[in-house]
Design a protein around this nucleic acid. Structure first.
Lengths: 233, 233, 233, 233
DNA sequence: TATGAATGAGTGTTCATTCAT
DNA sequence: GATGAATGAACACTCATTCAT
């Protein structure tokens, strides 16, 4: 995606090691400070290199983030959007995908957050970040469309639902993981996170149809309640 | 919440006008550049004032954002968390609240986004932003708990669900509104947005019960379907 | 000395009151912050006036200090250099003069210190402050010359001695009075201060000749001591 | 005293050169403008460096002055307060010490003056400057106490005398050296300065005893003389 | 190749001074 | 006369980037 940031020469193993170390340190810096506040000098210091050495690996600070973002996107594609063909049992399939999604965000939310921030002011990042979002949305909406053909979730814009659910996943990835998130004093284990998110996505994805069709007990009662009220008014 | 930023003297109408103009211009700048990139001089120029005039109104750039955030929080509290007693029809109640939420974010996502960004690197913002999040989560989880008593959505951590749903609302507020969001070429009208979000929240909030009741029929059928489909191809 | 700072119109009593209040507040500000750090707005606020009102009384911040310095100089002239004719008993005379000097500095060291500071970077203040110093030095050296004619303190440059003694008086005025001076936890009463300073000046003024002539016991012993030591080495 | 300002890495010779050049240029700027008026950019320009380079060496403008002040204090301690034991001939000892003092002030009064100015408004400088003063005062008062045990200078507060004499030395260091001092058109050579100052300090230090012993003869005679003189004129 | 000193444009903030009301 | 909002030049400090060694 970003050939510009590839150096002309084939990277040596040593260079690769350093490059990976830089990426790791950069993520840590991103997590602690955000992109604008993260300093090249600090990142390089935490890798025991001089500031100048950074430019052996990236032509600019932004190229570093673009590289991280590219890796992030590739990982998402490989592990979440892997196959859109659903040979497996769909609920399990979804759960598995969301588990992958969750783990990627647990590790890489600093990259996503930084890219998101940059996307607001910077054209190139806007495009790149938009691409990442679209990738997720496409995957999600293809599931939804499939279900809509089955009669679920009918009548609503699948793209919007996909967008909203992706937003939930992404931002929740941050809020349940980052120190500055919603639960600073609580470690949310992977199993719980994945279970809750799966259920919410499932509900959202099956949505309206499921309710009307399948909820004589719960939902209809709610509905009836409402009707009764509505009738007299 | 932030009395510190109130000047000692009673504000004159003229000063008030300027102050409001500054806030508005600041939101625009925040939307276009993000907090770190927004320049005081630019904000003041767009209000036809000199850079120095800013400091008649705020002691620092950060104080401005804190003020905007405080107003944002107050608005949320007034319009969304208004009454937690559910004397009214609950679905209508929820819809109305989410409508308010949506409109606030539609107007003020630059503030929320900037505060979110700052919360990552800055103690004071972390606290303030966390407070905003908690306010939303508390409101949401009180609804959920109420429903759980009625048998819905049982077995799952109401705080987690509330957090995830708030994340969805917030981030969707951005992604459906901002130019750099998911749908740059499409204007999502309030009614649609509110409808979709309400449905998703409702599903998430009612959730669990429905699943337990309906999964054998719905989800499994989905699964079977899929398999059948795949087999012949 | 500084006619520039006199307004064209005859000052009204009310204006005079405010002007005096400004001077007083300025001295306090000078004492607490020094000239560069003292802010017009603060001074005016402590007089319950708007910043703009300052310029009714002085054309600039520096004019204020020049005015204060002029008053300081006038007071010194009136009370210390009052009469250089020494009709009274000279020791008493000196003591009285130094008492006046001490009291002036006790009250006005902020002005002197500020003027001194400004004199380093600013031509006009350099001249003005130099004038104040010269006034003191002239007074002191005239005493010394008189004594030299009597055989005291011979062989030394009376101007240098006068300069040094004036330096001692001035700087001691600060160091024994200001909160940031040498004795923060001790209040040095006027009598003690005047006694010690008088003695030091007297000794300095009478100096060497007196010693040789009048100190067979003390000084010579010291001298002898020295010789003895020196002889063998 | 100020390890904080030492960079973490071992300073290279090149860096050391620049650092020393900065100190020197800073002293010149301090002499010409005073601390508040001295501009980092100017100092760095006079060292042929960009403004930003300053911060390789000092974290702030104030840290620079603290460093200069620390060096000043160290030099004073090493050369003036070197040994407080008076095994050598005391007058020679004193003369030598005052000579060192004089030369230090001749070189470094800009630092002392700037520190003095800053001490009025700034806590940290107040402490640091007070420390320098105390160091001088302690040295001086130990001499005085020694002499008091021999019967000199009895009955007066040795600390006050020490303070006053130190004030004389310090401020005279400025007034005989600086362009804006008392003798703009005259270069006072070291020998003269040291001689005069030594005599004044000696007189002040021995003082009291001499007075008591010699006043009937000397001072009163002076008084009588004066009267006699005046009468006929 | 790596270093780290140096660059220099950029920005938040201050405050003496002005001026419309 | 008085006000106080506004001015705008000034300056300390930052940091991505460069380059001599």
């Amino acid at each position: 995606m970003n050939e510009l940031i590839e150096p002309a020469t084939r990277r040596t193993p040593k260079g690769d090691t350093t490059r990976e170390a830089i990426k790791l340190a950069a993520k840590r810096a991103l997590a602690a400070e955000g992109f604008s506040n993260a300093k090249i000098a600090d990142i390089m210091a935490s890798v025991n290199r001089s500031p100048g050495a950074f430019y052996k690996y990236y032509p600019s600070k932004e190229a570093l983030l673009l590289d991280l973002l590219d890796a992030f996107r590739a990982r998402l594609k490989a592990e979440v959007n892997r196959s859109l063909d659903m040979s497996e049992e769909p609920v399990e399939h979804l759960k598995e995908r969301l588990g992958a999604f969750w783990k990627i965000y647990r590790d890489d939310w600093p990259v996503a957050t930084a890219a998101f921030q940059m996307s607001m002011a910077n054209r190139e990042f806007a495009r790149a970040w938009h691409g990442v979002r679209q990738q997720g949305i496409r995957g999600m909406s293809s599931v939804i469309k499939l279900l809509q053909q089955k009669g679920f979730c009918s009548g609503l814009d699948s793209e919007l639902i996909a967008s909203a659910l992706c937003s939930m996943l992404e931002y929740t990835g941050y809020n349940w993981t980052a120190r500055a998130g919603d639960f600073p004093d609580r470690l949310i284990d992977d199993a719980t996170a994945i279970e809750v998110l799966t259920r919410l996505v499932l509900d959202g994805v099956r949505g309206g149809a499921a309710q009307i069709a399948a909820l004589p007990s719960a939902a209809k009662e709610l509905g009836r309640d409402r009707m009764r009220r509505r009738t007299p008014s």
